Amino acid sequence: MSTYSLAIHGGAGTILRSEMTEEQEASHRRALQQALAAGEQALAAGGSALTAVETAVKSLEDCEYFNAGRGSVFTHDGRNEMDASIMCGATLNAGAVAMVEGVKNPISLSRMVMERSDHVFLCGPGAQEFARDLEVPILEPDYFFSDFRYQQLEEARAKNRVQLDHSDKFGTVGAVALDLRGNLAAATSTGGLTNKRYGRVGDSSVIGAGTYANNATCAVSCTGYGEYFLRGVVAYDVSCLMEYQGLSLAEAADRVINHKQAAMGGDGGLIAVGHKGEIALPFNSEGMYRGWVRKGEKAVVAIYRS
C-alpha cells in the first residue's frame, strides 16, 4: 500500500521551556504546523517529495522566527547571506546555493540550480547572476531586517565571536519526505552564523553533510554547528550506515548524532525519513523545533526534549 511521510525542523540548540513565554511557544508551534500542513497537502495530492520539501521549507523561510530566508541572521558587516540545498532520492540529482543575498526563497533557487543548470553548487556573485538570469525577484534588505537579529549581531560583535543562532532558540530549517510513488527528497536552508566573516559556509548547502537523499536508504536534513556536521559528513553517514552495515534508520541516525557527533563535540540534530516511510528525529541538544506526519495519522509538532 502506498504511503507518504514528512518531517520538518526549525533548528536545534538550547531551547528551554523555562525561557519561552506561552505566546512565543504558541507562535512557533503554529509556524511548524503551517509548514507541515503545506508539505503534507502536496503529498496527499500526489505531488512529488521534491515539491513537498520545497513547499515546507519555503513556509519556514517566509517566517521571521527561523534563521532562514526572511529571518536570516546578520554577517559581521550587516548583510544577510543565505545557504540552501535540495536533493532528489530517485535520481540523486541535487542543487545548492551559498552566500546569496536578497533571494526570498533560497530553497527554490537551489531547485532551479538542480533542474535548470548543468551544475550542483553555485555561490556568491555567480549564484546571484544565475538568479538574475532566471528573473528570480531580488528583495530589498528591509525585508530581511529585524531589530532582534541586529541586536544579536551587536552582541556578537561586542564579544568578538560568531554564534549559533540556535542558542537563541531559532535556527536552520529543513524538510524530508517520502511520496506516494516511493521517492525520497531532502531540503535544508539557513542564514548561517551571526557575525560570520570571510565567506564562511556551513553544512546546510553541502550535499552529503547537511542534506542527502537516496531512494535506497533515506532522506536527511541536518541542523546544528555546521563545522562538525561538515567534518562528519553527517547526512551521508546515516545513509551509509543503512546501506553498508544494514542498520535501521533509527539506529543509524542515533549512532551519528548521539555517538559520533557527540564524541566530536557536535551540537545539533537531524530529521530523516526512510524508504519505507519510517521517521527519525534525534538531537543531542536541549531541544529541536520539529514536526512529522504520516499518511492517515495526525500531525505532531514538538520543541523540547521531553
Score class of each variant (00 low, 15 high):
Ser2Asn: 12
Tyr4Met: 14
Ser5His: 03
Ser5Asn: 01
Ala7Leu: 03
Ala7Gly: 10
Thr14Asn: 11
Ile15Trp: 09
Glu19Met: 13
Met20Gln: 13
Thr21Arg: 02
Gln24Val: 03
Gln33Asn: 11
Glu40Cys: 01
Gln41Pro: 05
Ala44Gln: 11
Gly47Asn: 09
Ala49His: 04
Leu50Trp: 04
Leu50His: 07
Thr51Met: 01
Val53Pro: 00
Leu60Pro: 05
Glu64Gly: 07
Phe66Thr: 05
Phe66Ser: 05
Asn67Val: 05
Ser72Asn: 01
Val73Thr: 15
Thr75Val: 08
Met87Asn: 06
Met87Thr: 02
Asn93Cys: 09
Ala96Tyr: 10
Met99Ser: 15
Val103Asp: 00
Val103Lys: 02
Ser108Ala: 11
Met112His: 03
Met114Tyr: 01
Arg116His: 15
Arg116Asp: 15
Arg116Leu: 13
Ser117Met: 08
Gly124Tyr: 09
Gly124Asp: 14
Gly126Arg: 07
Gln128Leu: 09
Glu135Phe: 12
Glu135Met: 11
Pro137Ser: 12
Pro141Phe: 01
Tyr150Asp: 02
Leu153Met: 11
Ala156Phe: 12
Lys159Gly: 03
Lys159Val: 01
Asn160Pro: 11
Asp165Cys: 15
Lys169Tyr: 11
Gly171Asp: 01
Thr172Asp: 13
Leu180Cys: 12
Thr188Glu: 02
Lys196Ile: 12
Arg197Gly: 06
Asp203Ile: 03
Ile207Thr: 10
Gly208Ala: 11
Gly208Asn: 08
Ala209Val: 01
Tyr212His: 14
Ala216Asn: 10
Cys222Lys: 04
Cys222Arg: 01
Thr223Cys: 11
Gly224Ala: 10
Glu227Trp: 13
Tyr228Cys: 05
Phe229Cys: 05
Leu230Glu: 12
Arg231Cys: 08
Val234Tyr: 05
Glu243Ala: 15
Gln245Ala: 10
Gln245Val: 05
Gly246Val: 06
Leu247Tyr: 06
Leu247Gln: 13
Ser248Glu: 11
Ser248Leu: 02
Glu251Phe: 04
Ala252Asn: 05
Ala252Leu: 00
Ala253Cys: 10
Asp254Arg: 15
Arg255Val: 14
Arg255Asp: 13
Val256Gln: 08
Ile257Phe: 00
Asn258Gly: 11
His259Met: 05
Gln261Cys: 15
Ala262Tyr: 14
Met264Ser: 13
Gly265Asn: 06
Asp267His: 10
Gly269Arg: 09
Leu270Ile: 08
Glu278Cys: 07
Glu278His: 08
Ile279Cys: 01
Ala280Tyr: 08
Pro282Leu: 01
Asn284Gly: 10
Trp292Tyr: 14
Val293Ser: 00
Lys295Phe: 01
Lys298Tyr: 00
Val301Asp: 04
Ala302Ile: 04
Ala302Val: 04
Ile303Glu: 06
Tyr304Ala: 03
Arg305Ala: 09
Ser306Val: 04
